[in-house]
């Protein structure tokens, strides 16, 4: 079943007097529980596409449908905030943790702003997710007391703790060594399989692409390949 449907999405940026076409008419469908990798060289439009899917940016033209019928272009700023709050999880390259909060509090932040569950349940949920990303015992550490991989795990836990339908990860392993990258990707894949969460992540790292269950290649703002299952031909 389709979770996301992109119809002829275009994004044009203005750099001075020049129009830069970052996305040139992309149409694709993402099904629920897919583990999708968007790859392509730097400047190909991967991050722009993720930002458009994550409602952090608006397309110049085209339409994004969520969960079959919801037209994202019709939502106001506040409605888009609510949409992100309840439905999306983000993992960024730079993990973007809040330095004054502990690992526990950084993860808790994502569900505190939803405020739908009791304190006890919330605590259990945060501890469970931190345990499942391998951070048991490090809950009270602040970001500056964690390694790069541990920080990224906190960011993954933060993205997943509210059980979002879709997690968007922009180059989640870009700042990590290969061993830590594999650990992080293992966790993401495990969560995808365990919770059924849909993952879309961008990368240009061939090592990361090996984890892909669906691989979408973008060049110059256009989809040049879209393969899954047996068709997957991971570039090296």
């Amino acid at each position: 079943m389709s979770l996301l449907k992109l119809e002829n999405i275009k994004k044009i940026y203005q750099q001075g007097k020049i129009d830069v076409q970052a996305i040139r008419g992309i149409s694709l469908e993402i099904k629920k529980s897919e583990f999708t990798t968007i790859f392509g060289p730097s400047g190909s439009g991967k991050t722009t596409l993720l930002n458009l899917i994550g409602c952090l940016d608006k397309p110049t033209s085209g339409e994004i449908y969520y969960d079959g019928s919801k037209k994202l272009s019709t939502l106001s700023k506040n409605e888009l905030s609510d949409f992100r709050r309840y439905n999306l999880g983000f993992i960024f390259q730079g993990h973007n943790l809040i330095p004054v909060l502990t690992a526990f509090e950084n993860v808790e932040f994502a569900i505190r702003i939803i405020n739908e569950i009791s304190k006890k349940e919330r605590r259990k949920k945060v501890l469970d997710i931190l345990k499942s990303v391998g951070l048991e015992g490090l809950e009270e550490r602040r970001p500056n007391e964690l390694s790069g991989g541990q920080k990224q795990r906190v960011a993954i836990a933060r993205a997943l703790v509210k059980n979002p339908k879709l997690v968007l990860a922009d180059e989640p392993t870009a700042n990590l060594d290969s061993e830590t990258s594999e650990e992080v990707l293992d966790i993401m894949l495990k969560m995808n399989q365990k919770l059924g969460t849909t993952f879309i992540f961008s990368t240009h790292d061939p090592q990361v692409m090996r984890y892909a269950r669906r691989l979408i290649e973008i060049r110059d703002g256009k989809v040049t390949q879209d393969k899954q299952g047996e068709d997957l031909d991971v570039p090296h």
Partner: peptide, 14 residues
């Protein structure tokens, strides 16, 4: 700035 962006991504309103 990055934190503000992250908070917006998490769904915090202005």
């Amino acid at each position: 700035l990055e934190e503000i962006g992250m908070m917006k991504a998490l769904g915090l309103k202005m």
